[in-house]
C-alpha cells in the first residue's frame, strides 16, 4: 500500500538517491533537480520511456545515472512506447513469467517540445485508452536541447532562437503559451498536476497522491534552464520560486477533472520581478521599457487568478 499521509517538511523527503551524479545536464538544471525528487518517490522499480530532448543525453550507452530501466523513443511516440511496455508487462504477469512484485511503473519523461507539440497526438491516444502510466513533462518553455527555439510552451514576449527580438520585432514570441493542463484535463484522466523544483514538498505529496490512481497520471514541471533563459545557474531555484510567487506558474492538481490549487501565495508579487533578471526578457527593459507588454502579461496573470478566485473561493 502506498504511503498516503502527506509530508510536511523537506526533512520528511527520503534521503535515498535513485539518480546518480555524473550526468551531462547543464549546471543548475531545474529539470534534473525535479527528476531527482520524482525518482525518490517513484522508486527504482520503474521504467522510463523517454522522448527525444535534453534528458535523452542522461542515458547514453554505456553511461546511465539511473537504477531503473530506460527506453528511448522518437519525439512523437513516447506514450505509444509506454503502451507497448505496459502491455508486455501485463502479458508476462498474466502468463506467470513475471511475479506481480516484479512489476514496473511505466513513466514517460519528455520535454515541452514533445509534450506540447510533437507528441501531443500520441499522448491524447494514451489518455483516451486510459493507459496506466506516469507522464512527466519537463517544461523549460522552448526546445532547449537544440538551441532554445520557439515551442508551443514558450510564453508571450520571450526571446528564443527563432523569435529573436530586434528592430522589426520588438516583442519576441508573439503567441502565448498553450494551456496543456486544460488540454490534458479535457480527456478526464485521474490525476494531473503542475510542479515546481522550488516546492519539493508539494511535488512529493503530489506523486504520493497520484500513486493510488490507476490510469494516466500527468505532471508538468516548470524547469528553469540557465543557458536558455540566460540566467545565472545559481538562480534556477529562485526563478522557480518567483514564478509561483508572481502567479505566472500556478501550482495545482486536477483529480478526475476537479481542479484545486495547492500553493497560493498570500500576496502576489508584480510579474516584473520575475521578468527583469532573465536574459530572455531583457529586450522588454532595454533599450526602452515596453510598458504595454508588462501590462498585458500582468493582465493575463490577474485574469487567470480572478477566474480561480471566483471558482475556488481563494482569497487573493
Amino acid at each position: 500500500m502506498p504511503e498516503l499521509l502527506p509530508i510536511k517538511s523537506i526533512k520528511d523527503i527520503s534521503t535515498d538517491e535513485n539518480l546518480f551524479p555524473g550526468t551531462p545536464a547543464c549546471a543548475g538544471c531545474g529539470g534534473l533537480l525535479t527528476l531527482r525528487h520524482c525518482l525518490k518517490v517513484l522508486g527504482e522499480k520503474t521504467i522510463i520511456v523517454n522522448a527525444a530532448g535534453c534528458f535523452t543525453l542522461l542515458s547514453i550507452y554505456p553511461f546511465t545515472p539511473f537504477k531503473n530501466s530506460w527506453l528511448y523513443t522518437a519525439m512523437a511516440c513516447a506514450p505509444a512506447g509506454a503502451q507497448g511496455v505496459r502491455d508486455a508487462l501485463d502479458i508476462l504477469i498474466r502468463k506467470g513469467r513475471l511475479s506481480p512484485e516484479e512489476d514496473l511503473k511505466v513513466v514517460v519523461l519528455t520535454g515541452d517540445g514533445a509534450a506540447y507539440d510533437i507528441g501531443l497526438s500520441s499522448t491524447s491516444g494514451a489518455l483516451h485508452r486510459n493507459l496506466d502510466f506516469y507522464y512527466i513533462c519537463s517544461d523549460n518553455e522552448a526546445y532547449g536541447n537544440t538551441g532554445f527555439q520557439w515551442s508551443g510552451a514558450t510564453p508571450f514576449a520571450s526571446k528564443t532562437g527563432t523569435t529573436p527580438a530586434g528592430r522589426i520585432n520588438q516583442t519576441g514570441a508573439e503567441l502565448s503559451k498553450k494551456n496543456l493542463f486544460e488540454i490534458w484535463r479535457s480527456h478526464n484522466p485521474p490525476y494531473i498536476a503542475t510542479t515546481s523544483p522550488a516546492h519539493p514538498v508539494d511535488l512529493v505529496n503530489k506523486f504520493k497522491k497520484a500513486e493510488q490512481y490507476k490510469g494516466p497520471k500527468l505532471f508538468i514541471n516548470l524547469s528553469p534552464c540557465p543557458p536558455g533563459w540566460s540566467t545565472d545557474p545559481s538562480h534556477s531555484v529562485r526563478f522557480a520560486k518567483l514564478a509561483v510567487d508572481t502567479g505566472i506558474w500556478a501550482l495545482k492538481e486536477a483529480i478526475y477533472g476537479d481542479v484545486k490549487h495547492t500553493v497560493v501565495p498570500g500576496k502576489f508579487k508584480p510579474v516584473e520581478e520575475y521578468l527583469k533578471e532573465q536574459g530572455r526578457f531583457a529586450h522588454l527593459f532595454k533599450p526602452v521599457r515596453q510598458e504595454e507588454i508588462f501590462k498585458k502579461i500582468q493582465e493575463m496573470v490577474d485574469q487567470y487568478w480572478n477566474e480561480v478566485q471566483s471558482r475556488e473561493s481563494i482569497k487573493k
Binding site: 546518480f20 551524479p21 555524473g22 550526468t23 551531462p24 549546471a27 542522461l58 542515458s59 550507452y61 554505456p62 553511461f63 546511465t64 545515472p65 539511473f66 537504477k67
Partner: peptide, 24 residues
C-alpha cells in the same frame, strides 16, 4: 570499463564522468 553483451549499462555508470571538472 567492461561492456557486457546485449549492451546493458549497469546502474550508475554515469559516475565515470567526473563532472567536477566543469566547475568555474
Amino acid at each position: 570499463m567492461r561492456l557486457d553483451l546485449g549492451a546493458i549499462a549497469k546502474a550508475g555508470t554515469s559516475k565515470a564522468n567526473q563532472t567536477g571538472s566543469w566547475r568555474n
